[in-house]
Design a protein around this nucleic acid. Structure first.
Lengths: 226, 226
DNA sequence: ATTATCTATAGATCTATAGATAATGC
DNA sequence: ATTATCTATAGATCTATAGATAATGC
């Protein structure tokens, strides 16, 4: 990934020529991302995007072949970030010496932060992946990647698990957490009793539930919960 | 609810006059429901609806003031059913002598069937309640009703629960189940390992998880799981 | 006489293109 | 000389209405 200083300098020089263009492109993508979250993709028109970006329709179609290309570019950008963060967050070296509960707590924190940070990701995924196989496929890929990495981290610590079938139990437990996280992000939708609770309460109960199911001894700092 | 034979006869005679109109209206709603599931609400045009219903635009606007009114009518119909089924399914008399696990298994079966039976409900809810406060409110109401009824059924059996805080634990466990159910319905979206498993496997693990978390002794027929 | 339905179309968007104009890079 | 941007607009939908026609109920 890292370039030599020479090539990187060369690139820097050449990219000055495209500086304005790249800025416009980024501004369009940023505006689209904000609008995709606020109104959804379908309800966002090209005019909305260029208006918010302070650009024009012509510039838009210079950078993107059509509206679909904008949507793809948006998903490319966000899934690339997702992928990179996943790689970093699930690096086995980072979790050396950590217990299953540590790993899962890290996962919950990471996912909650991601959800707050890029709210458009979740909402746009719901909207598009129902009808666009390409986007659907890409999203499934990054999700599977995270899921697989987490599964490996957990199963590498299988001696902690008392459940008779660690593979099945891990798969189920991870899906359970994923579902609850997902539900936490469309807060417009679900007003269940627990939704009012803080992230901290949510993480605590989720970990307690998973520990009970996998038959893991809870961590010392969580044993004395009221 | 039940009418005397006389009034009911009278109504039957009078309603003949509106028979054709009601049939058209129902056909429009049925067509809309199918299309809302297939393409989503936004992507469904009035023309699509009347084409599938074998009707015409004029007839459509005779029955519905505008497209929004159609969406409302759809939600009215489906939430009314949801409400009635919930009432019947959570009647305390029906569950006399049942354990918490029985109740929750009944809930899962009921919800899975509902989800398969009226797939448009879940999808349309996701799409609309993000932007329409009225629909959002109505949906929140029927969901809260089910949630509250289930909570009461479970807490009426609180002596089965070993968890130190039965109220919190019940709220969390129910939300957990609801999230997983919800995730099971948008099967286009989530391709996690467990999604390939049968409903039966899903119900079994979900009940096992809840039992472990609430600290309930699992049922006799589930103790010998492999 | 009233209610339900049809066809045709006006008016509002929204996507995408064409052609002219301005900014960069050699 | 090339790349980026702008304004203006054509063409495709899609919602909703108008006005004419057909079916019901007294």
């Amino acid at each position: 990934m890292s370039r030599s200083r020479w090539i990187s300098d060369l690139h820097w020089v050449r990219s000055r020529g495209q500086a304005r263009g790249q800025r416009t492109r980024s501004a369009l993508l940023d505006a689209a991302e904000a609008l995709f979250f606020e109104k959804g993709i379908d309800a966002t028109s090209v005019n909305d995007v260029v208006a918010r970006a302070g650009s024009s329709v012509g510039a838009f179609y210079h950078h993107f072949r059509d509206k679909k290309a904008l949507v793809y570019a948006f998903f490319d950008r966000v899934t690339a970030e997702f992928h990179a963060t996943t790689q970093e967050a699930t690096d086995p070296a980072r979790w050396e010496g950590a217990s299953i509960v540590d790993v899962l707590e890290g996962y919950l924190d990471f996912a909650l932060e991601m959800g707050r940070d890029r709210p458009a990701f979740h909402r746009a995924s719901l909207e598009v992946s129902l009808r666009d196989p390409t986007v659907h496929e890409n999203l499934a890929e990054v999700r599977a990647e995270l899921d697989s990495a987490l599964t490996q981290l957990v199963l590498a610590r299988r001696e902690e698990i008392g459940h008779p079938d660690p593979e099945t139990a891990t798969a189920f437990a991870l899906e359970q957490l994923r579902c609850m996280l997902s539900s936490r992000f469309d807060d417009d939708l679900s007003r269940t009793p627990f939704e009012g609770k803080s992230d901290q309460d949510f993480v605590r109960e989720a970990l307690a539930s998973v520990c009970a199911y996998l038959q893991i001894a809870p961590r010392a700092d969580q044993e004395e919960s009221p």
